[in-house]
Write a protein that binds this DNA or RNA. Structure first.
Lengths: 233, 233
DNA sequence: ATCCAAAGATGAAATAATGCAGTTTTTAAT
DNA sequence: ATTAAAAACTGCATTATTTCATCTTTGGAT
């Protein structure tokens, strides 16, 4: 057997997916899932799921930060959402099993394991509580991206960038001070504006004392005022 | 018994919801659903589901056109998506049953019937194929709104308005010529720009021969060029 | 038919955002 | 340590968008 495909990075007993699953399904059934699953590691920038490809598996993201990326007809990228572990990636295809609507890429080193869609579906169909739990994972990601979009759709760039800073601080890095894993270009693809506009705006926030910029390191000094800018005051 | 609550506008035997349901569940079970259900009619502008309210029922929309509306902290409205019958409204709460995230309003006269969430959930939990079918209804609406947002997030107003015109023509009115059920203000709330910008842009398209504007009546004369504008050419 | 209110339309000034061209800094490779 | 390439930054001209003031049309109410 090919050792590369069977490399173990962590013990499944420590994994949240096992913990949650075993609240609903039998250990033997979980073992079936596990036997079909492979642990994987992704470096920053690596593509986890490719837009347009047939999705044959989910990925349970155990560690790391990812982006959902949509590439349009002109090759322009749009980041739909940024999520951190734990998350079930690729679930949008559980119901309508077709091709991946978006790419998923690691923006920090990631760790997780593949999950066989066909098998998970079969198990979930026989256990509706488990099915609902899996669906919750999936709709959580949908919901978070919709609220990002609401911000995009009716705020100006100041407000959108303030929103993103607050989002990253409160939902991803869980601190007022963080090292941004996004390039300015990616930030712009998330904010729906040009990279120059991101740079100008971040600099303005820095000059006004709202944030402190030191290359990739960002400190939010005045979340209150950022919230006011977000609310378009 | 109060006659008003039992008014019948149409025969359930003609209803797609019955047809679909009865492919999966027993007639007797459908009768239970029907016995808890009430037929309703909504005039243009009426609120079907109210943002923030506890959702006690779904609505199967049998006829008409609706908008999903999100009102922000400042009272500004954003139209997330426009959908036509048939559709299952309120389904976003099937999985995470909490409060309505958005309002749903009729933008054309609508007809439909309420469906008891608790009962539908109970039946669906015992019949996973039916559950999947219901989930498909729900995710369809999610998906359509996400693609609207992609257009919003990385196109300029010309492209967004072209997108909306094409969307309305191909997905809602199913014709190159239609009477717009949205006011200019609502169009702007869908396009994420000012109403003046909508008016200016529609007028420009009219002057360039792309469309013909006659008040609420719009004819798309050159879908090819609109598509080019949408693709930002 | 008349009036009123709401929606639609218009143009111009003010503001916001983009795109460019060039510079500096950072990062990675040798 | 040196170099090359990529990313970050800057200021400015151009373009896009909003906002405002004003005017016209439309569709109900009475």
């Amino acid at each position: 057997m090919d050792q590369i495909n069977h490399q173990r990075y962590y013990d499944c007993d420590d994994c949240l997916f096992k913990t949650i699953s075993c609240q609903y399904i039998q250990k033997e059934e979980f073992e079936k899932l596990r036997s079909k699953s492979v642990q994987l590691r992704y470096k920053k920038g690596e593509v986890i799921l490719k837009q347009g490809a047939k999705s044959t598996h989910f990925l349970f993201l155990r560690k790391g930060i990812i982006k959902f990326n949509y590439e349009d007809e002109n090759g322009k990228n749009l980041i739909l959402s940024i999520n951190k572990a734990p998350a079930l990636i690729g679930g949008a295809n559980l119901v309508n099993a077709e091709f991946n609507l978006f790419s998923v890429c690691a923006i920090e080193e990631c760790e997780g394991c593949t999950i066989d869609v066909a098998l998970l579906t079969r198990i979930a169909l026989g256990n509706t509580l488990y099915l609902f739990k899996m669906l919750q994972f999936i709709t959580d990601i949908f919901r978070s991206s919709i609220f990002n979009f609401i911000s995009l759709a009716h705020k100006q760039v100041n407000g959108r960038i303030a929103d993103i800073l607050i989002f990253l601080s409160q939902n991803i890095y869980l601190s007022n001070s963080f090292v941004l894993s996004l390039s300015r270009q990616e930030f712009a693809e998330f904010a729906g504006c040009s990279k120059e506009n991101v740079i100008h705006t971040l600099r303005k926030f820095h000059n006004e004392g709202l944030i402190t910029l030191e290359g990739k390191k960002i400190v939010l000094n005045d979340t209150e005022r950022l919230l006011k800018i977000s609310k378009h005051g």
